[in-house]
């Protein structure tokens, strides 16, 4: 019982803190790649704290409801991850958040929100099946969907699921809103999108979506960590390398359109997963 409580608390605390730090690191790294100095490490926290205490400005009250649902879902997903629950269940809960964010954006009347929301839906459409297939890969190798069993597996899963790791990389790029998949909202698309999906979320509600996003990032990194769960060192190296690669890809590619994203991600992602799953199936 106390163990459960501690784990829940860990999940609730780790999400915002680690997520914010990762985001700060990300910004510094990006700045360095662009030969800038970049903001302080704690900048994301300053931003969120500022937003939380701004005036609440509302376009449609249901947007507020959706923002709260988004943060609730993504924090529950991370807590479930810490509780070592069923991986598919975690994906579903996480998807609730993503969908609520979209519904919130659609509930505004601004065309910019709408375009962003639809693009976000297309992003969900692109990554969701792949995420399920990654989990299926875990199951075929370890015989379980439960995180307890997956973490307890005797060898690093990366060795058996190399292609699925690449597939997860695609998912991560989309989920982290990195180029070339930052279609729905990003800091660089003012001309076409304003802020897309997030255009009409403001002040404290924008802060909520940001924190929720941190939860999601940590959840995804947690899923990445499953690929090398045998020792801490390997896990750390894997995570750092993966994230570095994400930032690098973000800085050397440009934003593409959804048509390309859907065909490319489904084409490459499904092929890679199929090959990897067939291996596992035969093995």
């Amino acid at each position: 019982m106390t163990r459960t409580a501690i784990l829940i608390a860990c999940g609730l605390i780790a999400g915002p803190i680690l997520g914010g730090l990762v985001s700060g690191m990300d910004r510094i790294l990006t700045a360095r790649m662009q030969s800038r100095i970049g903001p302080p490490l704690l900048q994301p926290f300053y931003d969120v704290a500022k937003l939380l205490f701004k005036e609440s400005l509302v376009v449609n009250v249901w947007q507020v409801f959706c923002a709260y649902c988004y943060i609730a879902a993504s924090s529950i997903a991370l807590v479930l991850f810490f509780l070592q629950s069923d991986l598919l269940l975690i994906l579903f809960v996480q998807a609730v958040g993503a969908v609520m964010l979209v519904v919130g954006a659609l509930s505004s009347t601004s065309p910019y929100s709408h375009i962003g929301a639809h693009r976000e839906l297309l992003q969900i459409l692109s990554y969701e099946p792949l995420l399920v297939l990654v989990v299926v890969g875990f199951y075929l190798e370890t015989g379980s969907f439960k995180l307890t069993s997956i973490y307890a597996w005797r060898e690093p899963l990366l060795l058996k699921l190399p292609f699925l790791f690449i597939v997860l990389g695609y998912v991560l790029t989309i989920k982290l809103r990195k180029s070339p998949f930052d279609l729905s909202t990003c800091h660089h698309a003012h001309q076409e999108l304003v802020k897309g999906l997030l255009t009409d979320y403001s002040g404290p509600f924008l802060a909520l979506t940001e924190i929720a996003h941190w939860f999601e990032v940590i959840l995804l990194l947690g899923i990445c960590s499953l690929f090398w769960a045998t020792n801490w060192f390997g896990m750390a190296i894997l995570l750092v390398a993966t994230y570095f690669l994400e930032v690098l890809v973000d800085n050397i590619t440009s934003r593409m359109n959804w048509r390309w994203m859907l065909s490319y991600v489904w084409g490459v992602g499904l092929t890679l997963s199929l090959v990897n799953l067939i291996w596992l199936h035969q093995g």
């Binding site: 449609n60 998807a95 979209v102 659609l106 509930s107 709408h114 839906l121 299926v136």
Partner: peptide
């Protein structure tokens, strides 16, 4: 897997459209 992602897409779109309201 593919179908359930598509399912989410058409339902979410509809729900959002209904709530799209000043």
């Amino acid at each position: 897997a593919l179908a359930s992602a598509l399912t989410v897409m058409y339902w979410a779109r509809w729900a959002g459209t209904l709530m799209s309201d000043p």
